[in-house]
Amino acid sequence: MIRLPDRIVLSFGVAGALGLVVSLALAQEPPPQERRSGFEFMSRESQALQQDDTSNPGMLWVAEGETLWNAKAGQSGRSCADCHGDAAVSMKGVAARYPVYFEEQKRPIDLQGRINMCRAVKQQATPFPYESRELLALAAFIGKQSRGMPITTGDDQRLQPFYAQGKELYERRMGQLNFSCANCHDDNWGRRLASSVIPQAHPTGYPLYRLEWQDMGSLQRRFRNCMVGVRAEPYPFGAPEYVNLELFLMTRARGMPLETPAIRP
């Protein structure tokens, strides 16, 4: 596969603009019985890659995450395992309920943010930069402990205003192409942007290994990718807007099984 910078999606944007002007349908999310994971839109070969742990490259990050889980870090000299013990027990179901509301911060925090919070406060270590190998590895390792479990995000009533903001962002038109997320993922899922099938935007497998990236990436990287695609200015990594959008999408995907580490084309 040829390496392409993220910006190559610009060319998809033009094709998308031509394809989408014919669609006059109003934004309406798919009813629960029609919800489909991005997995179902992939080729059989890509599905096989995800389903076999010895061929899934995401497992390389999971293995690295396990090492980091047990490695002592920071001034505290403690590892994740020193407090949390066996991740297979303590982290089971955790990734399936994030983002979670935190009283101290008065806002929801995503799993990556939570990992860095633990690192800064409990381990007294430098937080990992966004999209760093370490942060993706730990998030993938923790995510894998919930693989196959249904997503349960959004139970907390205090999340309501942030969910509403995420929904508003999802439906807001932006960028030079003036598209909202919903214009593609609600109105035109199953159709194509150039050669790529448009999925329904259920973030069921993050962090995931994207064949186009030839790398592991977070949901925030995916958001930025889409925003650059519609020629909007992306928010910086870690922006609360991304967490609100993730909260909205994860709540919308409630009940769907978590697939971390997933493969996507």
Binding site: D52, T54, S55, P57, M59, L60, Q214
Partner: peptide, 9 residues
């Protein structure tokens, strides 16, 4: 036999 390795290539 399957063999997968992490490398930036």
């Amino acid at each position: 036999i399957k063999a997968l390795i992490s490398h930036p290539m």
